[in-house]
Design a protein around this nucleic acid. Structure first.
Lengths: 126, 126
DNA sequence: CAGCATCCCCAGAGATACTG
DNA sequence: CAGTATCTCTGGGGATGCTG
């Protein structure tokens, strides 16, 4: 149950901790930039700049910020090649790949229901 | 491809439009409150207040805002019972249910990798 | 009870610039 | 090329109060 952070009973103290942690992680990851990064990486290894080009409209800052967060949570691996100029590459880890499956689902869903949604919007906006 | 909003070639004008729309929809939906609402609704029908209780920490404003957005995109159906006091119920539509499948995936993923993630965080924070 | 409007404020996002 | 830091400012989001 990710929707709840806390439960009432003190007996469930560790469940509560797990819930609260789960919710925290969910909140980290359930944001568009993080998910777009995961989607963009896919099975490839990409450099910082390549990612930046790949993801329309993301700023330098948002990209680093989200990459750090994903790295911290163990979803992406960051490898630095000490060349000059520097070359930094990002890859999805196994947990990252696993999450990517469901992100693919979301992307597929978006495509599949484009029509529905567009129509629904027109109805609603009237 | 949700990561790109626009493509270069003018020949792909309608693909471009579809991409840009897809990205817009993706950005709408890929935020924690929207996803938590979808998860909370599940197969049930819930009233506004029930949803508010169900989702730890969501504000009145965020809840209405996201519900409107989801309604506009045709993911939830809003039914008003003209009683007094008013009773407003929300249910997932078929597209909403379909998306919920993948959201369930994300929640499952979170639970499954809690350990990995917690460990990774400890490593990173050192 | 649910919705909308208003006010207000601070975190978050962009822009810019410097370093390894 | 990638990362970090600083500054600025906007708009997201909370709080409150009124209406149907």
């Amino acid at each position: 149950m990710v929707t709840k952070q806390f439960r009432g009973s003190p007996k469930e103290a560790d469940l509560t901790r797990a819930d609260s942690l789960a919710r925290e992680i969910f909140s980290d990851i359930a944001n568009k930039w993080a998910l777009l990064i995961i989607e963009a990486l896919g099975e490839r290894t990409l450099r910082f700049g390549e990612l930046r080009n790949e993801i329309e409209g993301i700023s330098h800052k948002m990209l680093t910020q989200n990459l750090r967060m994903l790295e911290r949570n163990g979803l992406v691996e960051r490898s630095v090649h000490p060349t000059v100029p520097p070359r930094v590459e990002y890859t999805l880890t196994e947990p990252g790949q696993a999450l990517r499956e469901t992100v693919n689902g979301m992307c597929g869903w978006t495509g599949q229901y484009l029509g529905h949604i567009e129509a629904s919007r027109r109805r609603f906006d009237a």
